[in-house]
Design a protein around this nucleic acid. Structure first.
Lengths: 228, 228
DNA sequence: TTCATGGTTCGATGATAGTCGAAGCCTCTA
DNA sequence: TAGAGGCTTCGACTATCATCGAACCATGAA
């Protein structure tokens, strides 16, 4: 038996997909509840609870009780830095969670990322809003302009209601098939919901694919044109 | 399911005790055969073979055939750096394989980190160069000054030759025992080699410890004094 | 108190993956 | 050509652990 820091233990703690998903979700810096983390990881709360106690036992997480909620955050910056370093290494070795390559064109075209639109159309949506100055700011940190709010209200989205929610309205998400930014956050969710509500698109069961109808496709193009 | 670098996969690859032992053994910078690595990890060669193919599949290892032997090394510096960072995190959370033993002080004083000097003396080296303005720049991104080049040439290091190599000459690496920056990259390698070449120090077999002789110790202090 | 919501604990199940014996492949040596 | 050493492949066994249903605990609201 050797001596020194136990990277095997650390690795195995990070090495479970559910736990890794939770850690990545917490990389946003936000404090999340056990229930939220469970949904991020796609598991039940019981399972999440077990994972969370392991992560906390390894010193990677900190919890803060507040009423009947328990908010979890990464323990400190060092944890985030190591995770970031591991992401870099994984990326440079081609260790990706989705295999690049046009294996499933429909998936690359439009899919769900959490609860917002990703893929080709997700990127197009973001670009269109930005080019027409309905969004302002950088790729990673942006807000709605007044024109943007009006545009979204016209589309039937209650922007004020979104702003009353806890999570940020505008949030970016890096698209690994396109290697571009698309829209996440409360607005991303609201937009996808609205597309489905308008009958433009629907979720394909048992997959992440979002299927647009012919009419929906057209409507999407009119509302979110590519300027090029 | 999210997208992005698969840190869960990377973590699970590192997260097996046998594989972690092999990786740590390779942190010495030496090329080891499958049989040697098996004995390091305390497993049979069959099992080791399976582990090695996994490590190689994840891009963490490189193998070089030579006769009937297969020599394994870490794929590159980035792997070593992430491992070192994980060691630091594990150490700071108290995730240790054994309680600190008698070998520990020597290991903290001077050890090999892949192919450069780490520990107490590694940090001292970096500090000394920086304080005397032989290096310029930040902790993470720095270059040699003209005075620095001259100093190193006097020490018998062919800086120009280093610059012809592909990998960066100056690169920092976080030290897990000191939680400070020390010197990695081509220059880090060259410096350690030079210390050994000058007879100041030698590698202790079967460990990562670098043992300085009394004379070597003195010479090191004269060349890399602490200002404090 | 009663009810609802957020979380944890317990127990059973199922899948994954680490392990080694045996056999086979490859390469160098004689 | 035979033999030996280094390493991989195959197959079977086993232990670990993630998972979820059900029950339980805790906090806040009515």
């Amino acid at each position: 038996m050797k001596e020194g820091p136990d990277i095997a233990l650390l690795g195995s703690v990070i090495g479970d997909p559910a736990r890794a998903n939770m850690l990545i979700a917490l990389m946003s810096g936000k404090a999340l509840t056990a229930t939220e983390l469970a949904s991020e990881a796609g598991i039940t709360v019981q399972t999440a609870s077990s994972h969370l106690s392991k992560l906390e036992g390894a010193g990677l997480l900190q919890q803060r009780k507040q009423g009947r909620h328990r908010y979890f955050t990464l323990a400190d910056d060092e944890v985030a830095q190591v995770l970031e370093a591991m992401m870099g290494l994984a990326a440079s070795r081609g260790l990706m969670r989705t295999r690049p390559g046009p294996k499933d064109p429909a998936l690359r075209r439009a899919r769900v990322c959490y609860n917002h639109l990703a893929g080709d159309l997700g990127v197009q949506l973001f670009d269109s809003l930005q080019q027409r100055q309905l969004l302002t700011g950088s790729e990673t940190d942006f807000t709605l302009t007044d024109a943007g709010r009006e545009f979204l209200e016209d589309l039937g989205i209650d922007v004020e209601a979104l702003e009353r929610e806890r999570r940020p309205v505008c949030k970016s998400c890096l698209d690994w098939s396109e290697r571009r930014t698309h829209m996440a956050g409360a607005l991303g969710t609201a937009l996808l919901d609205r597309f489905i509500g308008l009958g433009w698109a629907e979720r394909v069961p048992k997959s992440r694919i979002i299927s647009f109808s012919a009419k929906g496709q057209k409507a999407f193009e009119t509302h979110f044109p590519t300027v090029n």
